[in-house]
Computed example of a mutant assay.
Amino acid sequence: MAARRVGNDLSRRKSDPTSSKLGNNEAVVAAELPWGSLKVVGNMSIDFHSLPAKFTVQNLLLELFSMFEKKIQYVCIEEPLDKFLNKSLKRCDDTYLDNLLRTLGNVSEVCLPSILEALIKWYEEQISIRKRSTNENKDRSQKALLAVNYLFCIVLIELLPQLHFHPTDCEKYVNYILHLSFNEISKGNRDPAAYGINLHNCLIVAETFAEVIGVLSQTHAKLVQKTFFTLLNECRKETPLTQSGVTNIISLLMAMKFYRIKTSQVSEIEQGVSFLDELASYYLEIDLKQKDLKHAIVGLLVEILLPVAAVSL
């Protein structure tokens, strides 16, 4: 039945409206884009009668999520467990994926809130699915979780620079992403033994979430600073400071690794200097015995100041 339907549809013109009527569980003929070539696809939740812009975004997202599913399966089942995610899912290594992300980034100029909503729903659903399957093979399920987080970050890094086109419409998504990023960065440091063979991949994911925070700092510097110091002050309440507390603070500092001070406006420079001043004050308050903590703060100051120095040269 499905084969006959496909054969009949292939003989129709693309403009024939009856070719977009879908039956349950049938293969259908559709175009990748309204003006593209025909291809046989499964019965997906695309509204073929929608406007071209909506259709394009839906198709892009479905194509992206389908590709991610294949990559997650490949990384977790066919590859060795100890292979690093940033090698398996290397950015700029898959031309088709790069083009998809670039296209999605371009269209997000006009519909970023909707794309972020769909992306977050996909992420939460994937995390829920992977967590339910942890009993089957703990290490592989854990790597799948990390792969989902890594791919989620890759998309965010591409999309979030468009936030300046939607200064108020994306606030709830920005808050969600920011708190999620800080939480995921500290997760591996809280209990590194729980990750076993996946510990290095956990650190890779943490660094990728730090990149997300860095991108957010370009449009929401005040919010990033406020969230950082709120979390830092929570950690500082612990007296005396235990090794666990020190580890949590260091992970927070590492989360700001990609924070960058913008130098195009005087107000932005002042805001950046204020942030550095607070960090320096905290450095002076720390006991001399906490060498690891002092070293982490100095390292962060260097990470932030070097790009500023490069711009001023």
Rank of each mutant, 00 (worst) to 15 (best):
R190P: 07
E270C: 12
L61Y: 05
T208G: 04
V302H: 15
T247I: 11
K121L: 14
L85I: 11
S274Y: 08
F68G: 01
V28N: 05
I286V: 10
A27W: 15
L199D: 04
A30Q: 04
M1T: 08
L156K: 00
E78I: 07
K222F: 09
T227E: 06
G245P: 01
F84C: 06
L62E: 11
G36V: 01
H220P: 03
E79H: 09
F182Y: 09
K294Q: 13
F182C: 03
T239W: 10
Y74L: 10
K262I: 06
H179P: 01
V57R: 10
Q73V: 06
L305A: 15
E124Y: 06
V298R: 10
S50C: 10
L301R: 03
N24H: 10
N106A: 14
F48R: 13
V41Y: 07
Q290A: 15
L159C: 03
R91A: 09
E171S: 11
L252H: 03
V298L: 15
L180G: 09
P52V: 03
L293H: 01
W35A: 11
K14P: 09
Q58Y: 08
Y123P: 03
T56P: 01
A147Y: 01
G42E: 14
L293K: 02
I77T: 15
L284I: 05
S244I: 06
F165E: 06
W35S: 13
P307D: 08
I261K: 01
D94A: 12
R12M: 14
K294N: 11
K172T: 11
Y195F: 15
Q243I: 07
L100G: 08
G7D: 06
H295K: 14
N24V: 09
L252Q: 04
K172V: 09
G272V: 04
D292A: 08
R190T: 07
S251N: 04
I204A: 03
K291G: 07
R260K: 15
T242N: 11
Q265R: 10
S264G: 03
I154G: 10
N86K: 15
Q73C: 05
V273M: 05
A2V: 12
K257E: 10
A31S: 08
L293W: 01
A144K: 04
R140G: 01
F258M: 02
A30N: 05
K70A: 11
S114L: 13
F55Q: 00
S15A: 12
E32M: 12
P17I: 00
A2H: 11
L64P: 01
T18S: 14
F228T: 01
E278F: 02
D139Q: 07
Q218C: 09
L81P: 12
A280E: 14
I286T: 11
K222I: 09
K87L: 09
